[in-house]
């Protein structure tokens, strides 16, 4: 017997995770404790996301994995192969073709549809953790809706830097109740948390699952006189010329030369295939690598 059970995990574990997902969807933004399992990859490599994906995938799904927007990084490739092998699912790099997308630290540029599911890998699910180390205390703060400390933190950003300097893992309030860590996505992605797809968050080491159903009200915390701003590098993609996508900055030589390129590789490739060329780009060719 060398076969894996479908999607690697045993059935009782999947039932436990599935129940946590349902409670998460019923209480948007609340972190549901679950009995996280050891997975055949280290903590920090997406064990929470992998367990949520394992509980959600069906044999009919098409699975996509992105790591900081890219389909071709080590983490993304290994997780994609993991489910190709253990669940036999079809895989894709195209956002539009995927039914389940596991992501580390980005939301795809392409708007998701209501039949798509986005699974986030979360390192620290508790937005208050760096302000209050005790789980007993943070749990009490959530139960009392006591989020003043988070506003103090954002205020201190303003007093020190003149603006809210938090650039990623920017805290949000879900449906007017729970303050939630959207995982370390850039704050550029925060407005996209109001989407048509189902969003599930898995934190393996910290043993928490939480969720945001479609069309749920997700508001980035801010002040009347310092409103939330979804920022990105003030540049266009050097490969495809996109001005509306989140950019990575790359050092390309020893002389300080640099270029900006879309962090979402599928979005960038799609634009280049359609004939868009950036300042340093070359016309798209199949298998140019």
């Amino acid at each position: 017997m060398t076969d894996y059970n479908f999607a690697y995990l045993d059935e009782q574990t999947k039932r436990m995770i599935r129940r946590a997902i349902l409670k998460g969807l019923a209480i948007p933004g609340y972190q549901v404790p679950f009995a996280s399992r050891e997975m055949p990859m280290p903590y920090g490599w997406g064990t929470g996301g992998v367990q949520v994906s394992a509980a959600v995938l069906t044999p009919d799904d098409t699975f996509k994995v992105i790591d900081q927007g890219a389909d071709d990084t080590t983490n993304a490739v290994s997780i994609r192969r993991f489910f190709e092998k253990t669940a036999g699912v079809a895989v894709t790099e195209a956002t539009v073709d995927a039914s389940v997308i596991q992501t580390r630290h980005r939301i795809p540029e392409q708007d998701l549809r209501s039949d798509q599911i986005l699974v986030y890998q979360v390192p620290i699910p508790e937005p208050l953790r760096f302000l209050e180390p005790s789980e007993v205390e943070t749990r009490k703060m959530h139960s009392l809706e006591e989020y003043g400390l988070m506003h103090v933190k954002l205020y201190e950003d303003i007093s020190q830097h003149g603006a809210i300097a938090t650039a990623y893992a920017y805290p949000v309030k879900v449906e007017g109740r729970y303050v939630m860590d959207p995982s370390p996505i850039p704050k550029f992605d925060n407005p996209k948390l109001n989407m048509a797809g189902i969003q599930l968050f898995g934190a393996g080491r910290e043993q928490r699952i939480y969720a945001v159903p479609p069309y749920t009200d997700v508001v980035s915390l801010d002040f009347d006189d310092y409103p939330f701003e979804a920022s990105k590098a003030d540049h266009a993609c050097d490969l495809c010329g996109a001005e509306d996508s989140y950019l990575d900055e790359l050092i390309v030589d020893d002389a300080g030369g640099r270029m900006f390129m879309c962090s979402d590789t599928d979005y960038c490739a799609g634009r280049r295939k359609a004939g868009c060329i950036g300042a340093q780009g070359v016309p798209y060719q199949e298998d140019v690598a």
């Binding site: 059935e11 959600v56 995938l57």
Partner: peptide, 19 residues
């Protein structure tokens, strides 16, 4: 086939709860 049947059934339950 418990693993496959329950995976498909859970998707139906989850999308019903989510929507």
């Amino acid at each position: 086939n418990a693993p496959l049947d329950s995976a498909r059934a859970f998707r139906q339950i989850m999308t019903a709860v989510a929507q």
